[in-house]
Nucleic acid binder design. Sequence first.
DNA 1: CACCGATCGTTCGGCTCCGAACCGTAAGGA
DNA 2: TCCTTACGGTTCGGAGCCGAACGATCGGTG
Lengths: 167, 167
Amino acid sequence: MDDLLPAERKVLDVLGEMPLDFRAMAVVSNLFRSSTAIRRHMESKILARDRLSWTSFVVLWVLWVWGDMEARELAAGVGISRPTATGVVTTLEGRGFVRRRKAVADGRLVIVSLTAAGRRKIAELFPLFNAEEVAVTSHLSAADQEMLATWLRSMLRAVDGGRPSRG
Amino acid sequence: MDDLLPAERKVLDVLGEMPLDFRAMAVVSNLFRSSTAIRRHMESKILARDRLSWTSFVVLWVLWVWGDMEARELAAGVGISRPTATGVVTTLEGRGFVRRRKAVADGRLVIVSLTAAGRRKIAELFPLFNAEEVAVTSHLSAADQEMLATWLRSMLRAVDGGRPSRG
DNA sequence: CACCGATCGTTCGGCTCCGAACCGTAAGGA
DNA sequence: TCCTTACGGTTCGGAGCCGAACGATCGGTG
């Protein structure tokens, strides 16, 4: 197999004698490496001009798709912890893109909504974001993309257990 | 296709009329979602007891595989920026796992090495880490794992251009 | 030999990330 | 009605993440 990254060749050289599962290693390391590189790419190419981070963008997008949400649902939907959601919503609130309000029926709950500015921003950005998603995936055939997404979902299920996610 | 996450069904409901590439969207969103979930899983299950983050662990591992490295090479190898590498190395230095020294030949360069404690720590942890890598991938066949890794490398190459990576 | 442009690592500022703990609110049982 | 347990969101502390800028060092040129 001559598809390996140079780093992967070195790993085989140095650790090849050890009883390790290099196939599993390749999956996990390349999953993480490619995900990090794509996040950085999307942030620098599409999001940076609006000074939005990947996660801020995902929050706007989740609210755009699902409408107003309770903060705990928003955290789950975006795939971040509740303290992180608090911080990111605070950032976006400061930018004027979202607002918080207390739920009437249950004083513990906070409802997060898009503002008009937030709605305009995500409606403007998402087609550009999706075009760049196309740019980074179009070297794979449609069938390969579907199979890749299927395997990635299976990886997610392997660690998420029954945790529902709505991002 | 009934393999979609509930979130993905909702996206089709709400944005289905827009001229978007849902296949590309599925690849990128599931890549990110699965990578984040696996990082969290590995951190909580294997790394937390030693209070190591994913990136600290990768730094130790890269030094283990490649030996002493210049700080700029280490940043590239781990896949992080140089300011981030400075911070993570500072953290690990404080924990006694790595040390820094100036290069003799070029006063600008910093050489980063594992300490004896660092070497013991990564040698102890990596088999456990790899066993968990196996746990999260073994639902896929060997052939599927290899194909998945190949596609993930192709995604990485799509955004990395010619940037060499040695993580 | 001096100066200029480039490189390297760090600092700064701002943002993300999360576990533990805290405070306010809700629900259930005695 | 009061007490206890649980839930929700936030705060705290610590760590990671990066672009821009800075200071130290190097190499090349005149």
